[in-house]
Design a protein around this nucleic acid. Sequence first.
DNA 1: TGACATTATGCAATTAATTGCATAATGTCG
DNA 2: CGACATTATGCAATTAATTGCATAATGTCA
Lengths: 175, 175
Amino acid sequence: MSLKLAVLGLLDVEPGSGYALLQRFRTSLGFFWQTTHQQLYKELHGLHEEGLVDCETVSQETRPDKKVYSLNARGAAELDALLTKAATPTKIRDPLLVKIFCGRRLGSDALRAEVESHRRKHEQTLALYRMLHEQIGKRPAAVRQRYHHPELTLRLGIRFEEAWLAWCEEIGAEL
Amino acid sequence: MSLKLAVLGLLDVEPGSGYALLQRFRTSLGFFWQTTHQQLYKELHGLHEEGLVDCETVSQETRPDKKVYSLNARGAAELDALLTKAATPTKIRDPLLVKIFCGRRLGSDALRAEVESHRRKHEQTLALYRMLHEQIGKRPAAVRQRYHHPELTLRLGIRFEEAWLAWCEEIGAEL
DNA sequence: TGACATTATGCAATTAATTGCATAATGTCG
DNA sequence: CGACATTATGCAATTAATTGCATAATGTCA
């Protein structure tokens, strides 16, 4: 259901082709929801069939044709309806934790290596999030207002990556 | 794949019926991996078909019959193989964040209420995790050693819940 | 005694997500 | 010119996860 919400939400900001939506998705919602182009295109087909979005084929001279989707009135109503429903808090769902939990069979070395590799990735992600956050901060107040909600989510992302990092360092030293 | 790993990991500690495994799952691995009894039973059937676990039907006088599963040599080998494969770091995947991201359509009041409700839930979860962590701390060193890996995961759980809480408080005040 | 909780197991349908494969046009670099 | 990246779209198969429904035995409380 969240993908539907995500796509409607993206289209609410501005119309776009599946490809363009995917680009935007990857640098925003994609930080805490994942999808693939296949799934996104399928979702767009579905939304179109449901009559929640309009679709216009645009021929381009220098590029293959594209289909530009936009939110219509029914789609906006659906988006509002979805937003009203309560989101249930999700728990962490991470294969690394399952692995560590079952990890007494694996040697300390292997575990430490794995934790270190995760640490590096989370370090990179944290750097990225901080950069994005700074960029938003530099914008004029009027623009910043438009990005207020995305910014709030980014802040949780930062807190999570900090937690990951601290944990990786702590247990890496202990293993 | 993680469910398979989880089930093999649980059986590696000790054998048990689907029902018993689910109880253990809920108070351990279930903190960072979710499942339902249907899925777990299906997984057990699958593992049995694959020949990775043995199954013995035990009739009980006061309760319905149960099937006690246990890890065999092939299952142990499979568990080791799964543990060797690298776990890819997952990102957060939370409907609340998708909602907040798209939340400019929703009023501040509604968002604040939702954040507050999440805050309360994370507060409860944090309290639970801290209690469990303390309980492990009180055990004699020998027992604590056996729970070392689960304890490591619990610590990440605590850090995450702390991050959630701090974030909910911060943005709740701002919305 | 009847309602409800607990232990114990499962099937079936649907939805969501992943993975593999495929096509087609143009731009860009060496 | 040929290889590779980018823009742009999709189908099909499979696996994973959720949701709804169903059964059956016993214990417990009012």
